[in-house]
Design a protein around this nucleic acid. Structure first.
Length: 289
DNA sequence: TGCCCCCTGCAG
DNA sequence: CTGCAGGGGGCA
């Protein structure tokens, strides 16, 4: 899925377009994709006529606050998309981005939320993602939200915080540590590989073996790579699209991810790809140790 | 704290 | 046909 930069891009786009709009209708095309918090009782909550008051992000989760103290929590997981189409048109001709998702609903549309001025489509090929209705005050107790560590740009994601974790998780490789959402939120497979490349660290390196300087640099590089990802509106390699249905541009600026066999942009040696923690893992054999 | 699993679809 | 895909929950 979308990692932090992709989710942040979607959140910023939605904030620009749907704030203040009222929900006119909700259509559920696949029951797996639409759930609600157990505190809401056994029957499907009705969110029609509620107003979109705020949109934010926590880790890779999207939080849409509605009126009447209700909220929608959304996780895109691997293949989720949230696409907003202004007006009632189903087709969008002449869009400048050739990768624009031209027809909504698509084959993988799971939930359709009709708003006052447009329609919000939740698409999800693999059905791992979800749209969850929850009372706003219950959000901190949500299973997904509760487990999240600090945001990567939060000042308390610092060496003093990370160092003891590296010491404690003595057997864990550094990639699995930075991808653990309870350690720091928002880093997924692409940006983990990219930040480890910038740090000159092999993904398999034991976290406990990092020096304090390396750990501090890693924090810095995680922030740098995520900032760059946001600047380029995310990485569109397979399913990710912005809220406007266009592709991100960060795939053109990656150093290692998806570059197996291509020359390292630093030393020219071919980029290696292996499997680590069950995930495809890219690195430069010569620049990272 | 690793590993299997949830799914669909596409490349090899 | 098998393996793989940007996530994370539940389970030893």
């Amino acid at each position: 899925m979308p990692e932090l930069p992709e989710v942040e891009t979607v959140v910023r786009g939605l904030a620009k377009h749907i704030l203040g709009q009222k929900i006119k209708d909700v259509k559920i095309l696949h029951p797996r994709s639409f759930v609600w918090d157990k505190s809401m009782g056994p029957t499907k909550p009705n969110i029609t006529n509620l107003t979109v008051e705020n949109i934010s992000r926590r880790g890779k989760g999207i939080i849409i606050n509605l009126s009447k103290d209700l909220s929608i929590l959304i996780h895109l997981k691997m293949t989720g998309q949230l696409i907003y189409v202004e007006g009632k048109s189903r087709l969008n001709f002449g869009h400048p981005d050739s990768n624009f998702v031209s027809q909504m609903p698509s084959r993988h549309t799971r939930v359709i939320i009709t708003l006052t001025k447009g329609i919000l489509y939740f698409n999800d090929q693999r059905l791992f993602g979800w749209v969850k209705v929850i009372s706003t005050q219950e959000i901190p107790n949500d299973k997904f939200i509760k487990n999240l560590g600090p945001e990567p740009f939060d000042t308390n994601f610092n060496l003093k915080y990370l160092w003891p974790i590296l010491k404690r998780r003595a057997k864990s490789n550094i990639k699995s540590i930075i991808m653990d959402q309870s350690v720091v939120t928002g880093v997924g497979n692409i940006y983990a590989d990219e930040s480890l490349f910038l740090s000159g660290l092999k993904p398999t390196k034991a976290g406990v073996k990092l020096t304090q300087q390396q750990a501090a640099d890693l924090i810095d590089n995680i922030q740098k790579v995520l900032t760059k990802g946001i600047k380029y509106m995310g990485t569109s390699i397979s399913h990710y699209k912005t809220d406007q249905g266009s592709s991100g541009k960060m795939q053109n600026h990656l150093n290692v991810y998806g570059r197996k066999g291509l020359p390292c942009k630093n030393c020219g040696q071919p980029i290696s790809k292996t499997k680590l923690n069950g995930r495809g893992t890219h690195y430069c054999h010569s620049c990272q140790s």
